[in-house]
Design a protein around this nucleic acid. Structure first.
Lengths: 366, 366
DNA sequence: GAAAATTTGATGTACGTAAATCAGAAAATT
DNA sequence: AATTTTCTGATTTACGTACATCAAATTTTC
């Protein structure tokens, strides 16, 4: 049997009330007594039963998610995952609010972070823009002991507690490596399409891509970076211009969003030499393009996993408990036509029949 | 506030005791009363507080993991992950026992399954061998209402509740697609190295690989399948023979284990034409070979994720509650030299200081 | 060495559910 | 209508922790 607070009391030779004072750092315990209790705690290997503690506290975790607004399938998918988490709130004891701010606007983000701070939430998750003002705003939250987690794009130099997102340098390197090998002997320049150099994830992807291309595939010239602001309409115009200007183009690496525009531009480009296209984030559009052969590789981060991980980590940070590092690693998923997962509709297995504890007869629908 | 059993009682106009009888399907409730209660339950949207219920029940989940024994890095890694889960037992309320049986031995597996059944565990996870006897043994467990989960290799035709593993047909297809594209213009036959055709995961990988190779890359002849029994020593002998017999070989797909032997054989093969090598499972050996350029791609399934998912699913099945399908999808990870994750040592972030609920000062070591 | 301040103990209630007991009410059977 | 059987209500204890209150013991201060 796992030791309880009573066992601590007995082991330390003190009363339950004193154990409670130590465990929950209440005042009024002499240092000697506190040490006696703490020694007993790790002597008998006590670990607080978080479930029971939360029950007693009627603990809820008010969390704030700050996401960019705008017409961006990936971010809207991310928001949908947060909404799905809101649906699980009663079970997970969370109270999640979503705040959207204009994309690539540091001032708006700072305002949102400061507004969140006023409400003293148990944690804040934010898709960060890399700027000193944003770093300062994040550090203000941390100064108030509010855990902060960066989502998708990190914020180096800040005091944020955790980053839930992929290794974007590795993503860029992977894209370059696959691009180079897929192109094989073919020659021709390669275009890189980004959203904005203001966000760290885009910069890191570019750095990784450029490093591997210049080192391992110097035969392919990199065309000047195109910044499409993650906006499908703008992306389409810009890509069309690039394709017209460089008809001998061999590859395109789209490291940001707005791929709808990229795909539209590619579709209008008939009877020309094949282009190797690598894009980020699996959406209905990139999925269709992958199946249709317009895109060769999609690099993806699972938004659902990111959101669930973010919530787990923020709750753990709020409670001051450790997180399982391996579990919270966000994988860079590589999709080609052949390993596309089925589109998931309703994604629960074996719906729960209220009030039934019976083992189900069967349930095989993976 | 989330509704409780008391709210059900009030809403249905019955007593708490009756609500309890309905919720836990105890005898002695008239059908009309039961229906009245059930209607009240979904009218007010009651969801059982699993944490409180487990607390009241002092519930523990005895689980059995049946794994193949033998000198196989992947399986030993899987076992290590189960042991790690045993370390978390007090927190997760599990009581896990590990049973190892000789690999590719259906009779031994059946015996282990039947032995597990005697102990009436809350769930059984098994790395399945595809055979009618094993299917029958699994179905005997299910007949006793014991949830069964197949791990790594599935068991079609059985009544198993869930499969925790990757889509192996997609894995084979992915390997073929990458192989074909990496080979580019180069010609030459491709060798396939398997463990045994007795396990379904190996067969499915082969099927997927073969399908894409013959359809999209008919220029490459597939050499006869080599079965190395996942045994490094045997694999080394067999691969050396193949390399000697077909010096013009262009690619090798190792879809099973025992890659230590493959790597050793490749190392001994000096100054010959480059071979594109795709292998499964990231171990210290394949990782080193990937970094060293001996292997081009490693397809992987995260053993830690598989084990944690298996435990979550078995607990859910034992309680008859729904599982989050998306969360339990085991990803096929594709590793090339450029996206190898850092080797994880101790994998917890911010060790918990006993008895402290304080927010930590900082913690940035991703 | 007495008063004041601090520390400790004892005890009770609460969180939401499970499980048991026993008395009483309502049905079904004769 | 009386009896048996089945169903329902009321109440209590428990799980492990949090939190509050008040009394008693100990230490500190003057």
């Amino acid at each position: 049997m796992r030791p309880t607070v009573h066992d601590i009391a007995a082991a330390a030779g003190v009363s339950l009330a004193t154990v409670d004072r130590v465990l929950n750092q209440r005042a009024g315990v002499r240092t000697v007594t506190r040490e006696k209790v703490e020694q007993a705690i790790d002597r008998i290997g006590y670990v607080r039963d978080v479930a029971a503690a939360n029950l007693a506290k009627s603990r809820v975790y008010p969390l704030v998610f700050i996401l960019p607004s705008g017409d961006n399938s990936f971010m809207r998918g991310l928001e949908a995952q947060v909404r799905a988490a809101i649906g699980r709130s009663p079970v997970e004891r969370t109270d999640i609010s979503i705040v959207t701010v204009p994309a690539f606007n540091a001032d708006a983000l700072v305002a949102a972070l400061d507004a969140a701070r006023e409400k003293f939430p148990a944690g804040v998750a934010v898709v960060a823009i890399d700027s000193p003002d944003v770093i300062a705003a994040v550090d203000r939250l941390r100064a108030d002991h509010i855990p902060v987690l960066t989502l998708v794009s990190d914020l180096a130099g800040s005091k944020r507690d955790h980053f839930a997102g992929v290794d974007n340098i590795a993503a860029g390197r992977t894209a370059a490596s696959l691009m180079g090998r897929f192109l094989g002997g073919r020659s021709g320049p390669v275009a890189v399409l980004a959203g904005s150099m203001l966000v760290r994830d885009h910069r890191e992807r570019l750095d990784g891509f450029r490093a591997v291309m210049t080192e391992n595939f110097p035969g392919h010239v990199l065309l000047p970076i195109v910044e499409g602001q993650d906006d499908p309409a703008l992306v389409e115009r810009l890509v069309s211009q690039v394709l017209a200007a460089s008809p001998e183009i061999a590859g395109i690496y789209s490291l940001g969003a707005g791929n709808r525009g990229l795909i539209a531009a590619l579709k209008r480009r008939k009877n020309a030499a094949p282009v190797c296209v690598i894009a980020h984030e699996l959406t209905q559009h990139t999925r269709a393009a992958l199946n249709g052969g317009l895109i060769d590789v999609v690099l993806n981060q699972d938004a659902g996993h990111e959101v669930r991980s973010a919530i787990r980590v923020l709750k753990a940070k709020a409670d001051g408990v450790a997180v399982l590092g391996a579990q919270e690693r966000i994988r860079l998923e590589i999709f080609i036509k052949d390993n596309l997962p089925f589109e998931q509709g309703s994604n629960t297995e074996m719906p729960f029949e209220q009030g039934s504890n019976q083992a189900p007869e069967q349930g095989r629908q993976d």
